[in-house]
């Protein structure tokens, strides 16, 4: 099973990871706001993650760590 870890406070809410995910299981949190003042990216369905790292590859800020 894949495991994602987010450095939430480094996230700038750009959404590039959201668009890159082939499983459509990322979103910008509608209710959380991080230290930078952005809505950070979060996983909506942990079990569906295939650990492909597409999200992490497109993230300009190295927010996402992917383990499999």
């Amino acid at each position: 099973m894949a495991k994602l870890t987010f450095k939430t406070d480094n996230c700038k809410g750009c959404g590039l990871c959201v668009d890159a995910c082939p499983k459509n299981i990322l979103q910008l949190s509608p209710d959380k706001i991080n230290k930078k003042g952005h809505h950070p990216a979060e996983l909506t369905d942990e079990a569906a993650c295939i650990g492909c790292a597409s999200c992490a590859i497109m993230c300009p800020d190295c927010v996402i760590k992917v383990e499999r």
Partner: peptide
């Protein structure tokens, strides 16, 4: 680990605008 920040980058948060590809 299949993906993590490379060692040659430090822990500082970059100043680039959201979604700017300078970071990539």
């Amino acid at each position: 680990v299949v993906f993590d920040k490379p060692h040659s980058l430090n822990e500082m948060s970059m100043h680039y605008c959201p979604g700017c590809t300078h970071g990539i």
